[in-house]
C-alpha cells in the first residue's frame, strides 16, 4: 500500500454562479488497502467549507467506499496495473462524484435488488442497492465502468 495518496484540487472560475465550485480529482491504484484513505481524503474535500450534517458525511463515506470497492474488486479485479479515477465536482448545492475503473463495465439494470427474504442470507450483492438508496441520483456511462453519484447538500 502506498504511504499516501496524492489528491489534486482545482478551484474553477465562476462564469455562472450556480456552476461555481471546486474540482477534486484523485487517482488510486487497484488495492483495497487504499480505499479507507481515499474515502477520507475525498470526503474531507467535498465537505470543506460547508456545514455538513453527520448523515451527509456518513452517506458520502459509505457510497465512496462502495463505488471504490466495486471499481477495484469487480471492475479492475485488483489488477495492480490498472487505476481508479475519482472526479468530484463540488457546487454550492450539490456534490457530484464520478468513479471510473479500467474494467469492461457491467449492466447496472441486470443487478437484482438484494432485499427479498430468500436473499437476506447472501453475503454479497448489496453495494449498488445501498448507493441508490443513499444518494439523490445515480448514473452510469454507456460502457458501465463509470458511476456518477449526486448528493444534494442539506
Amino acid at each position: 500500500m502506498p504511504s499516501s495518496l496524492r489528491l489534486c484540487v482545482r478551484r474553477s472560475p465562476a462564469p455562472d454562479a450556480r456552476q461555481a465550485g471546486t474540482l477534486v480529482t484523485l487517482r488510486l491504484p487497484s488495492e483495497i488497502g487504499c480505499i479507507e484513505e481515499a474515502v477520507e481524503l475525498v470526503t474531507r474535500h467535498c465537505l470543506a467549507g460547508h456545514d455538513a450534517t453527520r448523515t451527509t458525511r456518513f452517506r458520502l463515506q459509505v457510497v465512496l467506499s462502495e463505488a471504490l470497492s466495486n471499481a477495484i474488486v469487480r471492475g479492475n479485479r485488483e489488477d495492480r496495473d490498472k487505476w481508479v479515477d475519482v472526479r468530484a465536482e463540488l457546487g454550492p448545492d450539490v456534490i457530484r462524484v464520478e468513479v471510473t475503473d479500467e474494467g469492461d463495465g457491467f449492466d447496472p439494470a441486470a443487478v437484482p435488488e438484494p432485499i427479498r427474504p430468500e436473499q437476506l442470507d447472501e453475503a454479497n450483492g448489496r453495494g449498488l442497492y445501498l448507493i441508490r438508496k443513499l444518494v439523490d441520483a445515480v448514473e452510469f456511462n454507456a460502457r458501465g465502468n463509470s458511476i456518477c453519484m449526486t448528493l444534494r447538500r442539506p
Binding site: Q61, D121, E122, A123, N124, R126, G127
Partner: peptide, 14 residues
C-alpha cells in the same frame, strides 16, 4: 464505528 459498507454487512451475514 464510523461507517460500514456492503462488504462489512456481508461479513456480518456470514
Amino acid at each position: 464505528t464510523g461507517y460500514i459498507d456492503s462488504s462489512g454487512l456481508g461479513a456480518l451475514v456470514s
